[in-house]
Nucleic acid binder design. Sequence first.
DNA 1: AAGACGGGGGA
DNA 2: TCCCCAGTCTT
Length: 350
Amino acid sequence: MEIHVILGAWYEKEKRDLPWRNTSDPYKIWLSEVILQQTRVAQGTGYYLRFLERFPDIFSLAEAKSEDVLKIWQGLGYYSRARNLHETARFVASHRNGEFPDIYSELLQLKGVGEYTAAAISSIAFNEVQAAVDGNVKRVISRLFSVREAINSPEGLKTINALAREILDPENPGRHNQALMELGAGICLPKKPRCINCPLNGICMAIKENRVEELPLKYGKAKVRNRFFTYLIIRQKEKIWLKQRGAGDIWQGLYEFPLIETQSQCTINDYPSLLSEYLGAKISEAQINRISDPITHKLSHQNLRCSFIHISFPGDTSPSQIPGAAISIGEFGEFPVPKLIERYISTSGF
DNA sequence: AAGACGGGGGA
DNA sequence: TCCCCAGTCTT
């Protein structure tokens, strides 16, 4: 199914009831968009309601004293927004007979109305097919398509804008834009996104590639990805288990011990369930010989926190679920392994 | 392309 | 503390 269909249905069901969503008055939509520039809904809502109470239409705003406009704005920050709002109101009132511009290109000429706000107003108030790309949308799109470029670089922005236009709902651009933003504000969060509740989690490229936490990329600071590895050094008599790494990740083709990767540093308490799940067998504590202190291994683009758990099976039987294959310890030197593994073995032994 | 512009809230 | 928020304007 098309993205905008899923998204639209989700939005109808989950959208918040916000005061500016029950109007098609461009004055009110314009006001809400300006207030919400770099401002959270929770912070802006009270200002929106008080502003409208004091200046219910564009003429009352146009006739107001600038001190009174700023007074209402007091505490909200970015006060140029209030000045531009006032100036634009006077312009529209005097030069356009109070009629708000109704197309993107003209909205863009207004003071304080940039690309995002022009697209938002034209799509929401006038149903013009324009993609409104704000911080939420940049994040959602970059994850949805696993965009490799930084979202604050010119190329990255071009990519995001192009994708935003592609997935736009031509029948309902305003609703679609708001749905994308709603998703970014409530589900596709900067940190700890709630992918489990996301209507698009089945088609999200970042989820598929396990890159949700590191996206969106930002130019300026080198984003180093943190990963948490727990290696299982599994021995039975003179045998030890190794596993070859697959494509699409570091160390492709090299060998290492069976590995459990977690999203965060796991503690001693996590191991029993983690191990039994991974090996498909109950691991009694007696079989765990040693757990190393975590080692940090730095790659240019990743920080690896690695722990090693030494496990032995004294008898002749071992779980059949162990990933990889058992080799004799004597053959270990014949297998290519990452530096990290080599270093650990040379200092700690098997 | 980079900096200025605010204040609040969450981790 | 740091990051980010329904961005825009200026240099």
